[in-house]
């Protein structure tokens, strides 16, 4: 295993160095805002990061297995195709932007615009699990994949305003019997009890293992599933004006 101290390198140097290392396991210490770590990586290397990795961690990545012991900044898993990311902390805005596949587990909160434009294709199904609450615009224009928000940490509303605006595919799961607040109009709400959780129980279980949080406590509350009411939400939007 290669161990690197990020403080010893410049931004560009660090990114080049990480790319050249042939070891399967890489550990990076002392990160503080360095951007583009594992950006565009097409491999299944295992990367352990300490500190605060900068913007666009694992953007466009296809395969890497990343664990962050700390918080991450904006754009984690931006347009990621496949791979696995665990963040033992919080993340900034636009995490999982346009994500096409892979998994992103976040222990605490996520910022604005989580998982916007997420999409799925055949076996590629992106999944994001957030332990805390998330900012506004979560799942906006979502076309596929799964977004799970647990709200384990604080009293904030689970999601900020405009959750799921323009959604036309995929599912959002919110822990608890979530009221209508902040939810876009084109969304169908279904309340799920423990036995209806087949689709997500594996993710919940893994959240509990990764972050050492009892599964029973996660399952203490039911889940609210948000899905698309109408697959063509805007089909009638301009109909009155056209003909």
């Amino acid at each position: 295993m290669a161990v690197i101290n990020a403080e010893e390198y410049g931004q560009q140097e660090l990114i080049q160095l990480l790319k050249q290392i042939e070891d399967q396991d890489i550990e990076v210490k002392g990160l503080c805002g360095q951007r583009y770590v594992a950006c565009g990586w097409q491999n299944r290397k295992s990367l352990t990061l300490h500190g605060v990795p900068g913007n666009n961690l694992a953007a466009f990545a296809d395969g890497p297995q990343i664990t962050v012991y700390g918080n991450a900044q904006e754009g984690v898993a931006n347009t990621m195709s496949s791979g696995h990311i665990q963040v033992h902390g919080r993340v900034g805005d636009i995490a999982g932007y346009g994500m096409r596949g892979g998994e992103l587990f976040i222990k605490d909160e996520a910022g604005y615009r989580l998982g916007i434009h997420m999409k799925a294709y055949r076996e590629l199904k992106p999944v994001i699990v957030v332990g805390g609450s998330v900012g506004a615009f979560a799942g906006e224009y979502m076309a596929g994949g799964t977004l799970i928000v647990l709200g384990l940490k604080d009293d904030n509303p689970l999601v900020g305003a405009y959750c799921g605006t323009g959604i036309y595919g995929g599912e959002i799961y919110l822990r608890g019997d979530y009221p209508g607040k902040n939810i876009a109009s084109n969304i169908e709400k279904t309340l799920l009890s423990e036995r209806d959780l087949d689709n997500i129980i594996d993710y919940l279980n893994r959240y509990s293992i990764y972050f050492n949080y009892p599964l029973e406590k996660i399952l203490e509350k039911p889940f609210t599933k948000l899905s698309v009411k109408n697959v063509r939400p805007f089909a009638g939007l301009y109909a009155g004006f056209v003909s």
Partner: peptide, 8 residues
């Protein structure tokens, strides 16, 4: 603007 700038 970024968390890294505070942590540094």
């Amino acid at each position: 603007s970024e968390e890294g700038a505070i942590k540094v």
